[in-house]
Nucleic acid binder design. Structure first.
Length: 157
DNA sequence: GCCAACGTTGGC
DNA sequence: GCCAACGTTGGC
């Protein structure tokens, strides 16, 4: 019973195309520094579906679909003093931050813009659309996942 | 443990 | 660039 998630990124920083261009079309989802988002990642299982969302771009949109290919493990950037994600309070003995690996499945033929999602009554309960919801990792219900694929004109698997 | 100040996110 | 809606920090 796969679950579904939405993960946000600024495309200038790491885009869906960057994921597709990564070795094996895979990458670690580094840099999450929010406990709630971290806890969601801890709940992810291999095979879970991921909506890859581009934020802080015009227009904001879901760009593609990915899958979880490795479950949560410590994010190495927390120990790296040269990284923008460095956390002086984290140690390998007591890591604070986790990440998962995801693999690009497919780019959406047409990006699904935030406006389109907002305007769809079937998606009115989406965590992404809740006011003030700024988490970079959010759960997506099965119904929402199916509806999104339908809107994107993509069959599930 | 409270809460004010501050920083960040992210749509607009 | 603005600003609402958070989360985090740190003094007390």
């Amino acid at each position: 019973m796969a679950k579904y998630w939405l993960m946000k990124t600024e495309p200038d920083c790491f885009s869906f195309a960057d994921l597709e261009a990564s070795p094996g079309r895979r990458s670690g989802w580094e840099g999450v520094r929010n406990y709630q988002a971290r806890n969601f990642m801890r709940d992810m299982k291999v095979g879970d579906g991921v909506l890859f969302y581009h934020s802080s771009t015009e227009p904001p949109h879901v760009a593609g679909i990915a899958r979880v290919v490795r479950e949560a493990y410590p994010d190495p950037t927390q120990y790296d003093e040269t990284s923008q994600y460095f956390d002086p309070k984290a140690t390998p003995a007591e890591p604070r931050w986790l990440h998962v690996d995801i693999e690009a499945e497919r780019a959406l033929p047409r990006p699904l813009t935030l406006t389109v999602l907002r305007d769809d009554p079937a998606l009115s309960e989406m965590a992404l659309l809740r006011k003030g919801q700024r988490l970079s990792v959010l759960p997506v219900s099965e119904g929402e996942w199916q509806r999104l694929l339908e809107l994107a004109g993509v069959a599930d698997r």
